[in-house]
Amino acid sequence: MMRHIVLFRRLPGVEAQPELESVLVARMRDLTEEIDFIRDWRVAANELDRPICWDYILESSFDDADAVQRYLPHPAHQALVADLKQYFEWVAVDYSV
């Protein structure tokens, strides 16, 4: 099993747009409806206001590294990435469990 963790925060210099942010997060949450080989998927908002914290976390699981490699270029994922990169920056970690 491979875990794929991504942290998101609004890009520096980008003004907060709560309505747009809500739509983007909803699209992140709904991605499992379009990609059937995702095994586990959770998107959560940060709850504490600390300088070190990012705004959102995506925790997901895939069968193996090959499945993650299939997910990354998947058209549904790429369409979401195209919109996310206008508003968020992110970092990711992938590891075996």
Rank of each mutant, 00 (worst) to 15 (best):
S22L: 03
S22H: 07
V23T: 13
A26P: 00
R27S: 12
M28P: 00
R29Y: 03
D30M: 13
D30A: 15
L31Q: 03
L31S: 05
T32N: 08
E33V: 04
E34T: 02
E34L: 08
I35E: 04
I35D: 03
I35T: 05
D36M: 03
D36R: 02
F37L: 09
F37I: 08
W41Q: 10
R42S: 15
R42W: 09
A44H: 11
A45P: 01
A45E: 14
E47A: 12
L48Y: 06
D49H: 07
R50W: 01
R50P: 03
R50N: 02
P51T: 01
P51L: 02
P51F: 05
P51A: 04
I52M: 10
I52D: 09
I52Q: 11
C53D: 09
W54E: 09
W54F: 13
W54L: 10
D55H: 08
D55G: 04
D55A: 08
I57K: 06
I57P: 01
I57C: 09
E59W: 13
E59N: 12
E59V: 13
S60V: 05
S61F: 00
S61V: 12
S61Y: 03
F62M: 03
F62V: 05
D63E: 15
D63F: 01
D64V: 01
A65W: 01
D66K: 00
A67K: 03
V68N: 02
V68T: 04
V68L: 01
V68S: 05
V68H: 02
Q69P: 05
Q69W: 01
R70L: 10
R70H: 06
L72K: 10
P73W: 05
P73G: 08
